[in-house]
Design a protein around this nucleic acid. Sequence first.
DNA 1: CCTCATTTGTACGTATGTATC
DNA 2: TGATACATACGTACAAATGAG
Lengths: 235, 235
Amino acid sequence: MEELPRYRQVYEALRQAISEGRYAPGDLLPSEHDLCQRYSLARPTVRKALDQLVSDGYIQKHQGKGSIVKGAPRGIGILSLSGTTSAVGRPDFFTRIILKPELRPWTEAFGFPINAAEQQAGCIYFERLRVLDDAPVFLDITMLPNIGLPNFTSYNLENASLFNFLRTQYQIVVTGGMQQLLAIRADKRQREYLHVKSGSPILQLNRKIETSRPGFHIYSQVFCSTRKYGLIGTF
Amino acid sequence: MEELPRYRQVYEALRQAISEGRYAPGDLLPSEHDLCQRYSLARPTVRKALDQLVSDGYIQKHQGKGSIVKGAPRGIGILSLSGTTSAVGRPDFFTRIILKPELRPWTEAFGFPINAAEQQAGCIYFERLRVLDDAPVFLDITMLPNIGLPNFTSYNLENASLFNFLRTQYQIVVTGGMQQLLAIRADKRQREYLHVKSGSPILQLNRKIETSRPGFHIYSQVFCSTRKYGLIGTF
DNA sequence: CCTCATTTGTACGTATGTATC
DNA sequence: TGATACATACGTACAAATGAG
């Protein structure tokens, strides 16, 4: 097991505390000075953790005042960095495999250009349905290049987060990405999986996800009915 | 005139260089060491600028390798922090006022709760249409509390960014926010302004924007036809 | 209105670890 | 293997905003 950096440990501890309500919205976090003492760290280290909390929307900082708790970002946070599973963060959220991972040639990558190495390696393709509260929420199509992923197709992704899976099995971590958003009319297949009526408007997300492995990208297309839940993001 | 922090100056310089193509996608930026010498700064300062470029999607960093230029984020970047005008960044993008700023009582704020001070102060309400390439793209409804904004309704927002306007006139800067995304069917009014057909799917964004002034929020609702352009964001 | 303690913001310098080539 | 480049972490100093008195 690998040790997290110290600033990350502080980040995780505070994030958890906020998520559990041990710090309520409107509260002030302990001052940077206090946190330094509490964790036996220097101020730049603590500040890095706090910066991360700000950019994730958990707190807001004001000079001369302190760090104000905003609370855990609500809703379905697929717009943020975390994978869908951890972003949604509800125990009744689960994943059903529609189409098991299989090897294919690349045809296209949701409008994103792919590089030569990816093209040459072929594509691992699979489809999943994300279900919340007994209702289908996301239809999720994923493609990734078949580069250095031994036995990928034989594993079971049923209820593991893809991002966790890549991290633990292959030491690949997500570092960022870009996404394009469209409003479309659901087609027949999407209607069936998402249980929406004919012609219903749904969201389409095309995502190109960067990883710690240079030149290795995850391409993902998500269809989402927003009738019950809107997608939520912070910035 | 106020001096920007040094890390911000470096950020702006590099951002501009990337936007203008002086560093092309795939290029390596100068190393942190080089940038330190070039700008006569210490490494933490340069690193802060680079961190910002990473989180804005301009570059990607890899340990042992360097900072790889990704290029300027493309498309209509309303999902990012910048205001719409600067995010779109095209000279043929402009703003038409549909409804001039007027004072109203608060009724609701796009589903977000508002605080007592905001409720008490009343609401400045206005509507704008954003046009690109002669085609309407956004219908933008904005509400903000009438707190410390003398003469706001008498100014002309026609082609000024709201965020720039608040910054220069009132020293209010945007620090972050949250947004909710929905796919909806365009109603009659939206169809007329956005020039879409009956029943067309469009995007609805509800945004609550935090500012440097504690307790002062901007509430904004954006309707967007994605037929020609998709919304783009990085994460 | 001013002062002062507190708190965050900016910036420096240094050291060591680790990934890449 | 070594040189280079980024990652983590420490300690220090001063500036600027806030809020209490």
